[in-house]
Deep mutational scan, measured.
Amino acid sequence: MGFKLLSKLLVYLTASIMAIASPLAFSVDSSGEYPTVSEIPVGEVRLYQIADGVWSHIATQSFDGAVYPSNGLIVRDGDELLLIDTAWGAKNTAALLAEIEKQIGLPVTRAVSTHFHDDRVGGVDVLRAAGVATYASPSTRRLAEVEGNEIPTHSLEGLSSSGDAVRFGPVELFYPGAAHSTDNLIVYVPSASVLYGGCAIYELSRTSAGNVADADLAEWPTSIERIQQHYPEAQFVIPGHGLPGGLDLLKHTTNVVKAHTNRSVVE
């Protein structure tokens, strides 16, 4: 069995187990497998329904001669939608809004960016022009300005110390501490036991640490421990890039980060 097929099978099995364990909360999309990078042309966006009122959005972007996937989250909030992270750029984010209108038909009224990198804030200006209120932590807003990236308009308070959590509509926002970046936030959907790890969490097929220019490698494993301790009931975990899975993604990420750190020390 090929690795790609095995990865998709694991996603399907995880979703099936969740649907059985929580039949009222989960209505997993039966329309197909989780979209992969090879299936999404740059400039297009796919939506994948995880649970009743919960979707991931998947886009792709060219970077350094390669094409990478990027995940975000959409959560229903009454007759409105909360968006977590842009679709990595203005063109993708405009396509995301169009796809949401086509498939869901509810307005996106608020959006949260989970850290300051372009795959999370690139497209904020498109959201703002569409009347979406954009939010991020003060740290993310400051770092985005320093980096020359787009800056969300509103500040999220109460997320300055490791372990801080605040309720934001249908989700809980959690600051686990520094990891992929010093400002990275985690998003949890309690009604569906869905954990969105953003770039602080890796997919299972990833074996290298990737972009760690703004990471705190020493603190990252401790931050992941905080996530595990705060959300032990999480059933569906979405990484910032690639295929979702279960809580095993947290341990896998820790292993990859520690291996990278150990290699760096040896070198």
Rank of each mutant, 00 (worst) to 15 (best):
E225S: 03
I74Q: 03
Y12G: 09
D79A: 10
Q228A: 07
N149W: 07
S191E: 13
R206G: 11
G246Y: 06
E225T: 03
E233F: 10
I201W: 01
S139V: 08
L96H: 00
A144F: 07
Y68W: 04
T253N: 12
P244H: 13
L10N: 03
A59N: 09
V126G: 12
S181K: 01
T261I: 09
A59T: 06
R206M: 13
P190S: 06
G245P: 04
G158A: 12
I40L: 08
T60E: 09
V237Y: 12
T86H: 00
R167T: 10
E99V: 06
P41S: 10
E39K: 08
V146D: 03
K258F: 13
A95K: 04
Q103A: 05
P152F: 13
T207S: 10
R226M: 15
A90D: 15
R110F: 00
V11E: 05
S155G: 01
S56R: 07
A130F: 01
A200I: 11
G240C: 01
H252W: 06
A165R: 10
Y12N: 05
C199E: 02
V189G: 11
G163M: 13
M1S: 06
L81T: 11
A200Q: 14
L185N: 13
T222G: 09
H154I: 15
E157H: 13
I20Q: 12
T14M: 14
G246E: 05
P190A: 12
K4H: 14
H57R: 07
A234S: 12
D164N: 13
Q229K: 05
L185Y: 13
D125T: 15
K8M: 12
G177Q: 02
V237T: 13
V112N: 00
T60F: 13
Q228P: 02
P138K: 03
T114I: 00
Y196I: 11
P170Y: 13
I50C: 02
T222V: 09
R110M: 14
R263I: 02
S56N: 15
S208H: 10
L96I: 15
V121D: 08
K258C: 08
T140H: 00
P232W: 08
D52V: 07
G53I: 13
A215R: 09
E233I: 11
P107W: 05
V42P: 08
P232Q: 13
M18F: 15
Y135F: 11
V124F: 00
T60C: 05
D216F: 11
N255G: 14
G245Y: 15
D29C: 09
A144M: 00
A98D: 00
S38W: 08
F3T: 05
P138A: 01
R142M: 13
A165N: 07
T93C: 06
E101M: 01
S113N: 15
G210W: 09
G210Q: 13
A215N: 05
R76A: 04
G78T: 07
Y48S: 08
W55T: 07
K8V: 06
V126Y: 15
L82D: 11
P152M: 15
I17S: 02
T93F: 00
V124W: 01
D79K: 13
P69Q: 00
T222Y: 05
L81V: 13
G131R: 05
S191Y: 05
S162Q: 15
E203V: 09
A51K: 05
V126K: 15
A130L: 02
G210P: 13
G242H: 15
A215G: 09
R110V: 12
S7F: 13
A51N: 15
F236G: 10
V171P: 01
G123V: 02
Q228V: 08
V146K: 14
L13Y: 13
D183N: 04
G177F: 04
V171M: 15
S16P: 04
A178D: 13
V121E: 01
G198I: 00
D183I: 00
T14A: 12
T253C: 12
L247K: 10
D125H: 01
E157L: 11
G122Y: 11
V112A: 05
A59P: 10
S62V: 04
A178F: 04
S223K: 12
L24T: 06
D248I: 05
A192M: 13
A213K: 15
L81C: 06
T207E: 14
Y68L: 03
K8L: 07
I17N: 04
A144D: 09
I104A: 12
E33M: 04
Q103P: 03
L83Y: 00
H260P: 04
L96R: 00
V108R: 00
A129C: 10
V54M: 07
V108P: 09
Q103R: 08
A178L: 13
G148R: 12
I58W: 03
A144T: 08
K91G: 12
V146P: 02
P190K: 11
D183L: 01
G246I: 07
V171S: 04
I201A: 06
V266L: 07
H241N: 02
S16D: 05
I100G: 05
L47I: 07
R226H: 10
H241I: 01
E33H: 06
V11R: 11
T182F: 15
G65N: 03
E44C: 05
I100P: 00
V194W: 07
D85S: 03
L106D: 03
V171W: 01
V54Y: 14
P23S: 07
T86S: 14
V256R: 11
D125L: 11
R167C: 08
G78Y: 12
P152G: 14
A165V: 11
L204Q: 10
Q103F: 00
L13N: 08
L83P: 00
V54Q: 14
G148T: 06
G105Q: 14
S38E: 07
G198S: 09
A66D: 06
A51V: 10
A130S: 15
T114H: 00
L250K: 00
I20N: 11
I224L: 09
S208T: 08
W55K: 09
Y231T: 03
G197N: 02
Q229G: 10
A218L: 05
L217Q: 03
P244W: 13
S62K: 06
A129N: 15
L159A: 06
S22N: 08
A192R: 08
